[in-house]
């Protein structure tokens, strides 16, 4: 009796959950999920591709940076695991920007000076703060320093379970989202309609199209390449230690399996006479 009731209850709950899932799936049918791309920094051993990050930085500098701030220090561009520009390149790049000195000069005036590698990228010219940017664009363009980690999309059951499993793990949702958004301007008559943006009404009009940036390394100048490169670059900006983390993680994993194995056999040895 009890068993019967339980089963009925369980199947009722399951049916409800299923109905809910179907309803949810129908609701989101018009909101396609960003397609999943292949990234050099995906998987268990993946890492950033230096050349791709350098191209991505070029896209940022020539396109995105006119509206989006990106609060990271110039010096990180030369650190290992990133675009790895030379220190001289970074110094020259920093000096090409005017930054506001954090401390006043001897006359007590706040002044601007050429940047140094220790300085952060300054905000875009003309938009000294988010309010000023919002006044111009209707909505402040978000800081790009964490953008790739701050964007995700719902994967739904059961995919979110697989996303955690070794070999299937999925941590590049932010990159896929950024890539999809840049490729999502599919209504030529409405530049603020985006296929992948939740609700489709996006404040940013299509920012980039084929041929907009002149690549020096011969990579085809297509929107797809631009959006992949900028997505990879922003993934690095958001997670600059990824290469180090992966390398260290593999070492830790191998070590822990050895230690756990040794402890298992030690445990067996200790217990073998107790039973």
């Amino acid at each position: 009796m009890i068993r019967f009731k339980t089963k009925a209850l369980a199947s009722a709950a399951l049916a409800f959950a299923f109905a809910g899932g179907v309803a949810l799936a129908q609701e989101t049918a018009e909101q396609p999920k960003p397609p999943r791309e292949t990234w050099s920094f995906g998987g268990m051993t993946g890492g950033f591709d230096k050349a791709q990050l350098q191209r991505g930085f070029q896209v940022y500098k020539e396109v995105c940076s006119s509206c989006h701030p990106m609060t990271i220090p110039f010096r990180t561009l030369s650190q290992p695991g990133g675009p790895e520009f030379t220190e001289d390149q970074v110094k020259a790049l920093a000096a090409s920007y005017q930054v506001t000195s954090p401390e006043p000069n001897e006359k007590g005036e706040i002044f601007k000076r050429p940047g140094t590698p220790a300085d952060n990228f300054p905000r875009p010219d003309g938009y000294p703060n988010d309010q000023a940017a919002a006044a111009t664009f209707g909505k402040a363009p978000p800081d790009m320093n964490l953008l790739a980690k701050a964007r995700k999309y719902e994967r739904g059951f059961p995919w979110f379970v697989f996303d955690a499993l070794p070999g299937l793990q999925y941590q590049e949702m932010g990159a896929d989202y950024i890539h999809a958004i840049l490729n999502g301007y599919t209504h030529p008559d409405d530049l603020q309609w985006n296929l992948y943006y939740p609700g489709h009404k996006i404040a940013m009009p299509q920012p980039i199209s084929d041929g907009a940036v002149e690549y020096k390394d011969g990579t085809p100048k297509t929107l797809d390449n631009y959006s992949k490169d900028i997505a990879a670059f922003l993934s690095w900006v958001a997670e600059p230690n990824l290469n180090e983390r992966r390398r260290m993680g593999l070492g830790v994993m191998i070590f822990m399996f050895v230690l756990a194995g040794l402890l298992y056999f030690t445990k067996k040895r200790v217990w073998e006479k107790a039973h």
Binding site: F255, V258, L259, L262, L263, F265, T266, R269
Partner: peptide, 14 residues
């Protein structure tokens, strides 16, 4: 016992 020694040593390194 080698096993105990090895386990202890690896643990200490960790």
């Amino acid at each position: 016992d080698f096993l105990f020694l090895a386990t202890g040593a690896v643990g200490a390194v960790g």
